[in-house]
């Protein structure tokens, strides 16, 4: 009966339309590489992401049972969290703040954010990085993965305003205000030592 069953299963997949396996591998390298990078950032962040791994050892099968949990802090692709900073998913206090601009942010929105930060008494230091600059940094960082670099354009990386606050306790109100501004995609707060890069990201 089992042999008959196997035949039936073979016939059941007889209408397989086929697929380009080379393209599947290439797509997995690009998308999987992105997941890897995100995980690496989390590891750097030192967030309490504990990876529980079980080990299957029956019948020569030997592999981990669980995928790592989703990262606690994510920064956009092409950015990494500064090593010395302490990231938590829900920050009440932060010395350093990264404000990421939306794709296609208008010059007017950008200027409004820049002016607001320039006039903001809570801001100690501010550094701006355009998406073109982010792209150049990205290409240098990933020169060993040409397929990945090919999949990315300057437009797929956000621009960022990196800020150091005078007082970490003001982060909450600071974030609430800037999150409302047009053109702002995301705001990430970090607790960093003075030696860290402004904004807590690289």
């Amino acid at each position: 009966m089992n042999a008959n069953l196997r035949d039936q299963f073979d016939r059941a997949v007889g209408d397989d339309p086929g697929a380009d396996v080379g393209a599947m591998a290439a797509a997995a390298v690009v998308a999987g590489g992105r997941i890897r990078r995100r995980r690496r950032l989390t590891a750097v962040a030192g967030a309490a992401t504990v990876v529980v791994m079980g080990l299957g050892v029956v019948a020569g099968v030997n592999f981990q049972t669980r995928e790592p949990a989703e990262p606690a802090v994510t920064v956009p692709m092409g950015f990494s969290l500064a090593q010395d900073c302490n990231y938590r998913s829900e920050e009440k206090r932060a010395t350093d703040v990264a404000i990421f601009g939306k794709t296609g942010i208008t010059g007017r929105d950008r200027a409004a954010i820049r002016d607001a930060l320039g006039a903001d008494g809570r801001v100690k230091e501010m550094v701006y990085e355009s998406n073109q600059e982010a792209y150049e940094r990205f290409v240098g960082l990933w020169k060993d993965s040409p397929e990945f670099v090919k999949s990315v354009t300057p437009e797929s990386l956000p621009e960022s305003f990196r800020v150091r606050l005078k007082d970490a306790r003001e982060f909450r109100s600071f974030r609430a205000e800037y999150a409302k501004m047009a053109g702002v995609q995301d705001i990430i707060g970090n607790v960093c030592p003075p030696s860290a890069p402004v904004g807590g990201i690289k």
Partner: peptide, 19 residues
């Protein structure tokens, strides 16, 4: 495959990739 690529360094030496 995407998930496997993301963990490839860890699993590539595993005894049973098919499994």
């Amino acid at each position: 495959f995407t998930k496997m690529y993301a963990s490839w360094k860890r699993i590539r030496t595993s005894a049973n990739l098919e499994g």
